[in-house]
Design a protein around this nucleic acid. Structure first.
Length: 129
RNA sequence: UAAGUAGGAUAAAUGGUCGCGGCUGACAGAACCGAAAGGCGUCAGGCGAGGAAAGUCCGGGCUUCACAGGGCAGGGAUGCCGGAUAACGUCCGGUGGAGGCGACUCCAAGGAAAGUGCAACAGAAAUGAACCGCCGGCCUUUGGGCCGGUAAGGGUGGAAGGGCAGUGUAAGAGACUACCGCCUCCCCGGCAACGGGGAGGGCAUAUGUAAACCCCAUCCGAAGCAAGACCGCAAUGAAGCAUAUGGCUGCCCGCCAGCUUCAGGUAGGUCGCUGGAGCCUGCCGGCGACGGCAGGCCUGGAUAGAUGACCAUUCACGACAUAACCCGGCUUAUCGUCCUGCUUACACU
C-alpha cells in the first residue's frame, strides 16, 4: 500500500485500544488514534469467535482490500485498528467495503470527495465543497 | 442392467484489471534508514497451501540439557505368528475366532490348572450345590414326618459343576461305552502362529471377569524451532584512563557522574528454514508391504504472518478446511464427479 503500513506490535494495538476513539456498526469496530506521521498505520484483528482459520483469513483479506482500494480517501497521520465482529463472516466484499467507509465517515477521517475526483473537479472549477 | 464390495484419481475452468510473498536474471552498486548488526530500489521472467495443511494420538530426524557400566524396585506403553521399515501402537502376508449366499469385512487375539478381588436381582445353592421331584429305609393319627441316596427331570439366572445317545441302577451318576469337547503324550506338514492324524486320561482340570489387581514377554532419559546458534542499543559487573568538566562544599581527600576496553546479554536483527528416509518415469526382485538400479525434476518458506479482490464467460453451481522446523503413520471432517478389480441376481448370446 502506498500511503500506509501495517501495525505490528501488540503494544501498539493496546495503545490504540486504550487511548483511541472507537465507533462500531453491524460488521466492524474501528479504533483511531491521531499520530503526527506522514503515513497511516492499520491493524486488523479477527478473533476466533468469528470462525475457523479459513473464515478469519477471508475476513482479514476483505478488510485489507477494502482499505487498499479506498486508501486515498483516508486522512493521513492515523493509527487505526479494525476489529471484525462475528456477523462479518460470509459477507461479500461490497458489504465489508461499505461498512468500512461508513465508519470512516462517522470518525470524520474520510474526505467526502476522493482525491481522483478532486483532480477532475479542479479542471471543471466546480468546487462547491 | 441393478444391488453390493474393495481400491484409486480429482478437489470447478478460462481470460482481463488491481494487489501480496519468495526466487532467478539484468541495471544500479550511489543515495537513504539505523549506534551497530543489518535493511531498503527498478524492470523482466517464473513460482507460490491440503488430501486431510486439521486433531496433536503414536514413531523418527534435528537441537539443547542430563548421563561411567550393570542389576532390582517403581512408572508407562505394547501383546497370535512371520515379514516390511530409520522407527512405530503403522503397513503387508498368514493363523485362529465372529459376521455375510458371496466378493469381503471385523477382532487389545498372551496367562483364569500362581495368588487376590468382584459377580446386583432372582434362586435351595454362585463354588467344593438337594427347593420341588425321583428312589430306598423307618415311623405313622394314612394328611404325612424323619433319616439316607440321587444332579435324569422342573423352576431361577448371563452362567447350575463337560454335551448328546446308550448300557446300567432302587432311583441315578464318566460308574461304564460310542461320538464330540477338554487335557497329556507321540507322529506328520509348516520358519512359526497353527493344522491333520493316532494313543491315553475319565473330567477334583468346576463358570465368567485380566479396557479388576496381578503374572509373563518386549520396549522406553527429559524437553521442544517460542528448540537452539550467532550478532547485538539496554540493565548489571570487572579492569584501566583522566583528575579536563559537573555535583556534594570555597580548597584537599573521598564518593557519584565521564571516557575506553572486556564480560554480559534486554529490545532488535541474522541464521536454524527447507535438496528431502524427496517427487516422477522405466526396468529388475518379491504374492505383498517394500527393496535395488538407471534417467529426469527442484516443487511454499511467511514472521501481526503472503494464494486475495473485482469484472466477464461456461458448467456438474463448488464440501471440509489455511503450511509455521521437517518426515512416516493413525484418527476425525468432507459437495460431488470419474476410473478399475471382484461378488450376487436377472436378461441376452
Amino acid at each position: 500500500m502506498i500511503f500506509s503500513e501495517s501495525l505490528k506490535k501488540n503494544s501498539d494495538f493496546q495503545r490504540v485500544y486504550k487511548k483511541g476513539k472507537s465507533y462500531a456498526n453491524r460488521y466492524l469496530i474501528m479504533y483511531i488514534l491521531k499520530q503526527d506521521t506522514q503515513k497511516n498505520r492499520i491493524g486488523i484483528s479477527v478473533s476466533k469467535k468469528v470462525g475457523n482459520s479459513v473464515v478469519r483469513h477471508r475476513v482479514t483479506r476483505l478488510i485489507r482490500e477494502s482499505y487498499r482500494l479506498n486508501e486515498q480517501k483516508f486522512v493521513d497521520g492515523l493509527d487505526l485498528v479494525i476489529v471484525a465482529r462475528p456477523c462479518a463472516k460470509e459477507r461479500s466484499f461490497f458489504e465489508i467495503e461499505s461498512a468500512l467507509l461508513h465508519l470512516g465517515r462517522i470518525h470524520g477521517i474520510v474526505e467526502k470527495a476522493d482525491r481522483e475526483e478532486v483532480k477532475k473537479n479542479e479542471d471543471s472549477t466546480d468546487l462547491s465543497d
